[in-house]
Design a binder for these strands. Structure first.
Lengths: 338, 338
DNA sequence: TCCAAGATTGCACTTGTGTGCAATCTGGAA
DNA sequence: TTCCAGATTGCACACAAGTGCAATCTTGGA
């Protein structure tokens, strides 16, 4: 409040000590739980600290002990599902006294590697990877440095790292059953060119389930995992003969694009002419224009699990922790044959 | 790669120096641009560093010079416009060698204050506030500590801080002109209970413009800034006589909810029965089910401006920097009277 | 009044880095 | 061979914190 200082630099414990007329240790102890300080010096220190606007330097504190920094490596943050993940994680981490550094990167290996090195530079206690797949050697380096590594929905079996993910096979199978029950005869699969392990698994299981039942699946892949790729897929699907009457889109964004093409370009009505199943349960899937039947990723539970792992440092990782996707019945799939 | 160390702790320059058989200074200089090291020691150091997986500790580096940390204080990160801002900012900051700490907070003053203190604890060079309004005294503390403060779209005139924002009055006025040109006779305004200065200004200017032209405006406020508030507003607007035929929604999310209520609950057709103008130009506004006429916030330009401010430390702030919102003509407003 | 136990305090070291300064090394010219 | 300039190196300090240890101060009881 008092304008006695135009310091233009962070005030340190030394400055506070000088002003309070005590030793620097006293200042340190005042801000350390359980340290021995008399009530009087404590008050003097707090007064001086308040007047000067002192805040303990967590960076310096992190030199001796853990830094309490957790890095989040993520690409494509505007995607609703990613934004949701970042949101949950940052909030949960914060409530456990950790702070989040976000590294917004591309999904390719080089960018992720650079990101992971940054993570080490900032002495993060842990790194959570939401996008891309880091090279095994770099993960090893992180582990050797005592850093924990958590991979979310990147199902490569990488030694040492914790691997969380949603059970894609359940969703793929369930999607097929839903469409079969709705009496769909010509199945389609809409996917992206991302080639992520989770997406590939959803594709595979869906197609296998259909084949096992004697049905073919037409695959539409038109670009990245986005609304417009879905839209383009819809154009192609209905711009030819033998168009599908039941599709599984490996992502909600793709599904919404696909639905819009079907409805607005070709005048189809959902679920009468076409049934659609998505995956992710982004907020937009519940909007009145879509009411998409989809699967929800239990983000909160996954974030909680991440925290459990981080707070238990000797947990060695390497096993894969699977979460059940939660089906969200809405209106884009008929309950039975038309 | 070699498994000689189960250190479980970050490797420091001292360890590298020992292994390379040089002084710790040599290691430091190897990783400092322009420092004097012979080619031979440089190689020895790099070899040792590589083998041990050494990474310079940016935290310790930040003890002496600037930390290169920028804090982003944000609430409601899942909102598309916020996710977009965070995305642009993190990317731009990164490309200038800064790292972003995200503090995910509520928008109330207490939470923002706590967030700002964290910012000081981590010795961030700068804080960018996207949500909520911090108390003036705390901003002063930040400035006294030599930290820069940038407020985005929180138009309170707070001394010392940099204030960026989009020109809300232009948008409010323009929205009215669009609706008048479309021949709308019963105007509506859909807003939230957030009470943010930007939202309030958009409301005010829109209503003033209408009044100046002799038109009344029915105001609908049903909750927070969200899709469902917009939907609820739509329910109320059309569940009574004298319902509006042209509305300005202060946010795209509100607009999309409002449109969905009008279309799916009341069978209205847009833009024939109802014209809608939004604000933000989130991705969903361009989706085929909406094609919403709205105003785009020049996020990239704003992020660039933030960077300019941060890279020029003696810029004193306090003036307000306004950005023109960019109109996005789409299909939710008729080009002329019906 | 004196003594001892317990509470406070400050010194000095630690963490990992960058850098000024002085000492040493190198290489080329006389 | 000698000398000097320039390149390289290492010491020691600074940065901002936490903490073990010993010294000091309180306090209470005999």
């Amino acid at each position: 409040m008092s304008s006695d200082s135009k310091t233009r630099s962070f005030v340190s414990a030394r400055i506070v000590a000088e002003r309070a007329g005590v030793s620097r240790s006293a200042v340190s102890r005042t801000f350390t739980d359980g340290a021995s300080v008399s009530e009087e010096t404590r008050r003097k220190v707090l007064d001086a600290a308040g007047a000067l606007g002192y805040h303990v330097n967590h960076l310096a504190r992190g030199l001796r002990e853990r830094s309490n920094i957790v890095c989040l490596v993520v690409a494509d943050m505007t995607t609703p599902i990613r934004a949701g993940m970042v949101d949950v994680l940052t909030r949960e981490l914060q409530s456990s006294g950790k702070i989040t550094m976000v590294i917004n990167t591309k999904a390719d290996t080089d960018s992720v590697s650079t990101a992971l090195r940054q993570t080490l530079n900032y002495r993060a206690d842990a790194t959570v990877v939401l996008s891309g797949t880091p090279p095994a050697s770099l993960i090893e380096t992180c582990l050797a440095n005592g850093q924990q590594v958590v991979l979310i929905n990147r199902d490569d079996k990488l030694v040492g790292s914790h691997n969380l993910g949603v059970d894609n096979s359940v969703a793929g199978r369930e999607a097929f059953f839903l469409l079969r029950r709705a009496g769909c005869r010509r199945l389609g699969l809409v996917t992206s060119n991302a080639g992520t392990a989770s997406l590939v698994e959803r594709e595979r299981v869906f197609i296998e389930a259909a084949n096992a039942d004697g049905m073919e699946v037409a695959v539409f892949e038109t670009g990245p995992t986005s609304y417009s790729s879905g839209f383009e897929a819809g154009r192609r699907a209905f711009g030819r003969s033998n168009s599908p009457d039941g599709v599984f889109c490996v992502t909600d964004l793709l599904a919404l694009g696909f639905m819009d093409a079907a409805v607005h370009e070709f005048g189809l009505s959902i679920p009468d002419d076409l049934c659609v199943v998505g995956f992710d349960d982004i907020e937009q899937a519940s909007w009145e224009s879509y009411r998409l039947t989809t699967f929800s990723q239990p983000l909160k539970a996954m974030a909680d699990q991440v925290l459990d792992l981080l707070l238990d440092p000797q947990s060695a990782g390497s096993e894969r922790i699977l979460f059940e996707p939660i089906p969200r019945w809405r209106k884009s799939v008929r309950p039975g044959p038309r």
